[in-house]
């Protein structure tokens, strides 16, 4: 009946043409703009940091050589040597990695090689919670728990109230989940046939792990460590709370010393006056931090992408 009511159009009535769809093009442009905003934010980062860092180096009593080699950082009296800030950053980072690498890697080995599906389902959320805790909470933990603990263990005279060791150890706990999950991905990517081959040659599980799986996953593990270092260098709240304020050139981890990020946080915590040497110094240090983390991330990703290609 419907055929009678609505006869099919004859062949000559059908016109095939491309309906102009303006919305399609509009949406395409809109999405392209969204995609470009990320480029824009990188460019503005580089311009902002570069411009004000340049202003800093154009100050009469600042030279690039002094900045990179000087061992006193006291902007109030015109001493701009970044070395003390860098050493403090490296010391806290060193302790963070020496906690996070062994613990994170062993945890990853346990999760990928030993744990049953059930245990994994129980343990992984705990690591995710650890990864989701804001860093200011870790800072509180370092200052109110780890530092008093260190002071009781090592003596009040040896350990200062603010010290790099406590900040570094807690930072290690913070980046442990990062190392663990990235290493686990790397271990997981090692094909099962390699493990079976090791077993068939009569190796024990641990021999298989140390001699077959870990070497095969090495590049992934290295990438995880590089990214962890980058995280540790850029971490602010823990060092701002627990590592101390006021730069000092010391290699003793039990002493207080200010890191690069700690200096930025302390100086900008007040309503800082624009275009003072202290204000511009923030940008110079920021530029240093940005380039360091950028290069580390780049290397980390290169290593990761290389290891991905191995067994595919």
């Amino acid at each position: 009946m419907s055929i009678v009511d609505h006869p099919l159009p004859r062949q000559s009535d059908i016109v095939i043409y491309r309906k102009p769809r303006w919305t399609e093009g509009f949406i395409h442009v809109l999405l392209f703009i969204c995609g470009s905003i990320s480029i824009l934010s990188t460019i503005s980062l580089v311009i902002v940091l570069g411009h004000d860092a340049l202003l800093f180096f154009l100050l009469p009593d600042v030279t690039l050589v002094d900045f990179l080699t000087g061992t006193t950082w006291l902007p109030s009296i015109g001493k701009y040597g970044v070395i003390p800030l860098v050493t403090a950053t490296l010391i806290t980072t060193f302790f963070a990695i020496s906690v996070a690498l062994p613990l994170g890697l062993s945890a990853a080995i346990f999760l990928s090689e030993y744990a049953s599906q059930r245990t994994r389902g129980l343990l992984k959320p705990i690591l995710e919670i650890l990864a989701g805790i804001p860093s200011v909470v870790y800072g509180f933990f370092a200052l109110t728990f780890i530092t008093p603990l260190l002071r009781t263990l090592l003596g009040n005279d040896n350990v200062q109230i603010y010290n790099m060791l406590s900040a570094g150890l807690v930072m290690g706990i913070m980046i442990l989940p990062l190392v663990c999950s990235m290493s686990e991905d790397a271990l997981f990517a090692v094909p099962h046939s390699l493990r079976d081959a090791a077993y068939s040659l009569g190796s024990t599980k641990v021999e298989m792990i140390f001699q077959i799986v870990l070497p095969a996953a090495l590049s992934g593990i290295i990438a995880s460590v590089i990214l962890a270092i980058s995280r540790a260098i850029g971490e602010t709240m823990i060092v701002a709370l627990a590592a101390g304020s006021g730069s000092s050139f010391t290699f003793n981890p039990l002493n207080a010393a200010e890191t690069m990020t700690g200096y930025i946080a302390r100086i900008s915590g007040g309503d800082i006056a624009y275009d003072t040497p202290e204000y511009n110094a923030i940008f110079a240090i920021g530029f240093l931090l940005f380039t360091t983390s950028f290069v580390l991330n780049l290397i980390g990703r290169r290593v990761t992408s290389r290891f991905r290609e191995v067994y595919e």
Binding site: I39, L49, S268, S293, F294
Partner: peptide
């Protein structure tokens, strides 16, 4: 490729750097 690697790198930039950006651009 450029946008993609740029986004990956932005995700790894320390958060305090964004604070510097915000201070210079939005606040000033």
């Amino acid at each position: 490729k450029i946008i993609q690697s740029n986004i990956d790198n932005l995700a790894g930039v320390p958060s305090i750097i964004y604070g510097i950006l915000g201070l210079a651009i939005f606040v000033r």
